[in-house]
């Protein structure tokens, strides 16, 4: 399983990558593998204000459906429209293909997210169960 070091992770298997005052949001390798072939992504609504842990998008595979929760609070600045026609990009490279960009309004929220090491340990524990 691939878990890049420079990202922040959530228990719900989202990642964010911080660049200045904005954050790229996507799903992890662990998430895409467990969902299987992704067939549809319902993107977040543009320009809306979202709260941390609010459900903002949906990822569907043939056998499962999963809500995407905002890892931080902020405004949806951009959505990746490429996924509308090619949801498989999330299977092919989940870290190169983000779902949305959110404004980073409160740095302190990052403290509540996991590092790559912590996230790997978290996933290993899930697999055991």
């Amino acid at each position: 399983m691939n878990t890049p070091d420079d990202l922040f992770y959530t228990q719900n298997h989202e990642w964010i990558k911080v660049e200045d005052d904005k954050a790229y949001l996507g799903i992890t390798d662990y998430a895409q593998y467990n969902l299987g072939d992704i067939v549809f992504v319902e993107l977040p609504e543009l320009d809306i204000q979202v709260e941390m842990e609010e459900a903002i998008a949906v990822v569907e595979s043939v056998k499962a459906v999963s809500s995407i929760y905002a890892p931080i609070s902020g405004t949806i600045l951009e959505v990746n429209e490429e996924l509308e026609d090619a949801p498989e990009l999330l299977n092919e490279d989940p870290y190169e293909n983000h779902i949305a960009i959110i404004s980073l309004d409160d740095d302190s929220e990052l403290d509540e997210l996991m590092s790559a090491t912590d996230y790997d340990a978290y996933c290993a524990k899930l697999d055991k169960e």
Binding site: F40, V62, V65
Partner: peptide
């Protein structure tokens, strides 16, 4: 097709 919309997958959602 599009079964992810349906109750047996989406359950309480």
């Amino acid at each position: 097709t599009l079964q992810a919309r349906e109750q047996h997958i989406r359950r309480e959602k």
